[in-house]
Design a binder for these strands. Structure first.
Lengths: 341, 341
DNA sequence: CTGAAAGCGCTAACAA
DNA sequence: TTGTTAGCGCTTTCAG
């Protein structure tokens, strides 16, 4: 077998010549889109097989206007630029979308860079945009092109776009806050991330609403998802000292939770005895920290499954749904918020 | 803004009309591949921006013969079909290849099904094939087409293909076996997977060589990667009972290690006291099992990085390397093989 | 049942 | 510096 690279691909014309038919007959014999005599069909198939013919996907797509491919854009910048610690979330989402797409035998393209003109654009029939920002520019660009888009989580400024899978944060955040309250917390500090997406906005809104309902003064601060492991302790230190320190912390970024636990320990604060600690996304870090840290699992696998389902339905011409699909994050209660009664 | 879907895309012709120039001028003004007067260039850019022009990637690729996209095929069947437990390995490899590709601003396509004629083939300039089988058919197919291929781990029957990133198993497997021996193991059982790939073959070869060198009778058995959690205990049970039970087990599939530990416990065997246990791939299961299980980390991130590097070099016309790139798996020694001295 | 030919949108060779 | 045009490989009318 010739394994040299750069071999000129076999075209439909060569197959036609070999089979002694016209190229349109080859096309139809192979696609079965019009009746071809059994004999001819057999001859064509044989010729195609012998030559190792594989239809040029670009030519086909150019002609038909469809590539059969779905794009994926993961918006949060720290997903890619981040440390290995941030990788679990990225890997889970990317891995499960890829898995779902493979299950449906549909090609998935990771879209490299929508805006950079130096980067070739990709032939996609539709695009999944994961975790868009508020007023997301990439999302707007794709919608502007008229490309079918499905989002994983909503653009917080366009919460009602129907082609979306959303997470229903409020009940879960409330359940968490009630749980903290039950365990004795009276002064809960929320440390949100700085990415302006649903994952930061919605829980924050739910927190503020909860505080208001309870007549408690909200306490919030920001902790950028882009911080390194080293940055966190010194930023958190001041929040833990002084007489008005909170008795519970809810931190968005799961990887930072163990660091906060350490910083607390350095101040002589025990978890959960002196400080309750919870995170708004789950990770191995949180699970294996000591003590294990209560966290919200965003159910990336389920998000992926539904998003792929939506996209394929949409590409098959399904009607616009009445509204987004809602999934509920799962609260994983662990020792960090459970006091010995 | 019109966000209706199914909008007809803007073509180069419309941009040309709007800018009052020919289509080739548009093409060249935008690509900069030939000198265009500043005034014209500006006019063209403006027209393109106003219309929201985005060059049709299929037309471009058809013409140029290149798509700028790299394919990815992950061969092990259980990677996709497997249980969620098998997901960590898949996710890590897929996630890190995707990350590397994004870093290089090059599109990555998950190839859905190379053989199914009903599935459209994808426009890729090259393809990364991960964990090929011995005499891998997909690999052969791609090589037959003359497509540039880089493999993550070698096809065990074509170990010398230069465009490959390989894992150097023998020294690590030997180190593990020596370690087990040091800890008192005299009768090591190897439980390989049933997938005929390098990850199963090479460690097995290393094990047999090690036994031979030491004059020990090898003991091996198979435990398919496709087994469910429930299947494993009853299959393992018989191996653990009887007077000739091994005093150490090396199991390929990491997720099975904790199950083996449980089965052992059910027989009254303590780990590591009565039985040493190690796995040939790492996972959270192994890390968080009790006791934590010694495992070989295949360094998927490093494999991904080098594979992407190789592929991009190859597509840029780099010369064929003298041989494969070798990486060394990392041995993570944990309690399951460490006896209190 | 089969063939001829148009044309998808773009790039690049060739002309001017 | 710019325009005209061939043609990448395929699908799909339209003729036969």
């Amino acid at each position: 077998m010739d394994t040299a690279s750069g071999k000129r691909p076999v075209t439909i014309r060569e197959v036609a010549e070999r089979a002694g038919v016209s190229i349109s007959t080859v096309s139809h014999a192979l696609s079965g889109r019009r009746p071809i005599s059994a004999a001819t069909k057999a001859r064509v198939r044989e010729a195609a097989a012998e030559l190792g013919y594989d239809p040029n996907p670009n030519a086909r797509s150019l002609r038909t206007g469809r590539s059969g491919l779905v794009g994926l854009i993961l918006r949060p910048r720290y997903a890619v630029a981040g440390t290995p610690d941030r990788a679990e979330t990225f890997n889970r989402l990317v891995g499960s979308i890829a898995t779902e797409m493979l299950r449906h035998k549909t090609g998935l393209i990771h879209v490299p860079d929508l805006h950079d003109p130096a980067v070739a654009s990709v032939p996609m029939d539709g695009c999944i945009v994961a975790h868009p920002y508020g007023g997301d520019t990439a999302l707007a660009e794709l919608l502007g092109r008229g490309l079918p888009v499905v989002t994983v989580e909503e653009d917080p400024e366009q919460p009602d776009l129907p082609w979306a899978v959303r997470l229903d944060y409020p009940p879960v955040v409330e359940a968490l806050l009630n749980h903290l309250n039950d365990q004795g917390a009276r002064d809960v500090l929320l440390l949100s991330g700085t990415e302006d997406n649903a994952w930061n906005r919605r829980p924050r809104e739910a927190y503020l609403a909860w505080c208001k309902r309870r007549g408690l003064p909200p306490r919030t601060a920001l902790l950028s998802e882009g911080l390194t492991q080293r940055d966190v302790p010194e930023l958190v230190q001041p929040l833990l000292s002084g007489p008005d320190r909170p008795d519970a912390i809810v931190v968005a970024t799961s990887d930072f939770a163990p660091l906060i636990a350490e910083a607390a320990a350095a101040q002589g604060l025990r978890i959960p005895d002196d400080l309750l600690l919870a995170a708004l996304t789950d990770s191995e870090h949180a699970r294996t920290s000591s003590p294990p840290i209560t966290a919200m699992d965003l159910t990336h696998e389920a998000l992926a499954e539904r998003a792929v389902e939506l996209m394929l339905a949409r590409l098959s011409g399904a009607e616009t749904p009445a509204g987004p699909v809602f999934l509920t994050p799962e609260l994983r209660l662990r020792e960090s918020t459970r006091r010995r009664d």
